[in-house]
């Protein structure tokens, strides 16, 4: 479904992502992990159209989408969430999701259908569909769910989930992980899930890819990657507290 070849992104003299290549099959959940500053989010932003890749190819369902605008990428069927939630503050929860459903489907649905899609997406992430509720009452977990609902409402084939667990407590993390699993199971949506902590992610994903300094240093099943010496060295480091933290 997705083929990424030699994806590279430079900011001036700094190479954030360097020659990243991977394939993604339909229905897969791929975990993308790595320490802070390893190039996960940059990879993500190149896939979603927020950044223009310096070089490399991104083929999605047979079309080269590298360099497409964010909105065009979305219309092609790739939705994303943001690491730090970026809700539309001046819209209600329902409107946030409805506007995504309407424009994410390139205005091919009616206003009424857009609101129906929005209600479905909100139900999927277990947020209230009360049309009068603003986003003011949402906490960290609620805002993460809203990000997810907005992305789902666009009717994606591929979901890019950026640090869906950041700022959540343990039970909320489990909930979020279950939600991503349910999204794949019920909607058949392929997922790339970025996280800088391994924890819950390892339980859910089919495959993991580890980035460090913009390069892929390991890739395979969660068990393979967790045992990979390079991963242990680079990602977990030799610091025992970091190792404990990652295993927790």
């Amino acid at each position: 479904m997705l083929e990424v070849r030699d994806l590279t992104k430079r900011f001036g003299g700094f190479t954030a992502v360097s020659g990243v290549s991977f394939d993604l099959a339909e229905g897969e959940i791929l975990g993308l992990i790595g320490p802070n500053g390893s190039g996960k989010s940059t990879t993500f932003n190149c896939l979603s159209g927020l950044y223009l890749p310096t070089s490399g190819n991104v083929r999605f369902q047979g079309r080269d989408i590298a360099g497409w605008s964010s909105s065009r990428v979305c219309h092609a069927g790739i939705a994303r969430t943001f690491q730090i939630p970026r809700p539309f503050k001046n819209l209600t929860i329902l409107e946030n999701v409805a506007v995504s459903a309407y424009y994410g489907r390139a205005r091919s649905v009616s206003r009424r259908e857009a609101f129906v899609h929005a209600e479905e997406a909100l139900a999927m992430v277990r947020l209230p569909v009360d049309p009068t509720l603003g986003i003011g009452g949402l906490g960290a977990a609620g805002l993460k769910k809203l990000e997810l609902a907005r992305a789902l409402a666009t009717g994606p084939k591929l979901l890019l989930a950026d640090e869906s667990l950041g700022g959540l407590d343990e039970s909320e993390m489990d909930q979020a992980a279950d939600m991503l699993q349910a999204i794949r199971r019920d909607k058949g949506i392929t997922i790339i899930w970025v996280e800088h902590i391994m924890g819950v992610l390892m339980r859910v994903v089919d495959r993991v890819m580890v980035l460090d300094h913009g390069e892929v240093i390991a890739s395979g099943t969660p068990a393979e990657v967790a045992a990979h010496p390079k991963v242990i060295e680079v990602y977990l480091g030799s610091d025992p507290t970091a190792r404990q933290h990652a295993q927790a």
């Binding site: 979603s48 159209g49 927020l50 605008s69 964010s70 909105s71 979305c74 219309h75 939705a79 994303r80 943001f82 970026r86 809700p87 539309f88 503050k89 001046n90 819209l91 409107e95 946030n96 409805a98 506007v99 995504s100 309407y102 424009y103 994410g104 489907r105 390139a106 205005r107 206003r111 857009a114 907005r150 992305a151 409402a153 666009t154």
Partner: peptide, 24 residues
């Protein structure tokens, strides 16, 4: 119109608007 929501979304966050398919 739905355009109002799009413009409100844009005034709140242009990148996020583009990410949900709005041609900002």
């Amino acid at each position: 119109g739905m355009g109002r929501y799009a413009l409100q979304a844009i005034s709140s966050d242009e990148d996020a608007s583009a990410s949900v398919g709005i041609n900002v």
